[in-house]
Amino acid sequence: MTEFCQFVLIGLVTGSLYALIALGYTMVYGIIELINFAHGDLFMLGSFLALQLVITIGVAATPGSAPAPPAPSTGAAVLAIGLMLVAAPVFCAALNAVVDRAVYKPVRAAPKLAAIVSAIGVSFIFMNMGLFWFGPVDLNFPSLVPNTNLLDGTDLRFTYKDLMVVVVTIPAMVLLTFFVRYTTLGKAMRAAAQDPTAARLMGIDVDRVISATFAIGGALAGVASVVYGLYFNTVGYQMGFQNGVYAFTAAVLGGIGNIPGAVLGGIVIGLVRALGSKYAGEEWSEALIFAILIIILLFRPTGILGARTREKV
């Protein structure tokens, strides 16, 4: 029972990370019905930028150089985390919005396939940028958050690292929900997603709203990329693909275009991965994820929350 609880805990923590990435897929799909295949690779570039930042300020070693720098003081670690949590989201937001303007906007009027193929192209470009940036080997991401157990005295492990994931991802999702539901721009996003022509008749600059959607999705990927690096302490140019596939699956599972659905889907994927690797074996966890996806889509083609509360964006 304790073991089960432990793996549920792991599943919830990793699941909230997937959820954060999944939101970027689902928001963009909600507004322009594009599966942004480059989103996972954007996430990877975010973590690379974060790594570059900690190397530059001397908290982490340059990859390949022998002596690791001494463990940073708590103050330096907090500062580094804070810097990364600002820089990576800003970088990813800007990059995603620029790509929308430069790549997707020109083909907006063309058949949907044009944009999808463009997204696959951007994905490769991003991946190669990553390859060029830090090379093909996996890199150590500094462990700035201690691994001390917060549930000492019980049989469960819930470390500062786990806490960090929750403390960052949950407010980010709450903030997003609040933003989309109550702010003028958030309402304009939903309006543009539901009826772009009517939105233009209201005076909404739909292209600007789409850019903003890309920026927000990118920012969430940027947040996720920093949390991912600090949590797993390994990053590499291919991490975007694997995590992108999980997150995309989460978005589809929850009902693509649906914000609460993406969060729920992320949590489900996290739980399936954690429990699957425990009870079915690590090698089965991916097969299990996609088996569940197929089964759910067979019975609910619109995803878990897809039809009932279809809230696009």
């Binding site: 309006a191 539901q194 009517a198 939105a199 008749l201 209201m202 696009k312």
Partner: peptide, 15 residues
Amino acid sequence: KIFPRLTVLENLQMG
């Protein structure tokens, strides 16, 4: 062309 999943009030606000 009412926004179907915005409330009546939100529709007016969009106007």
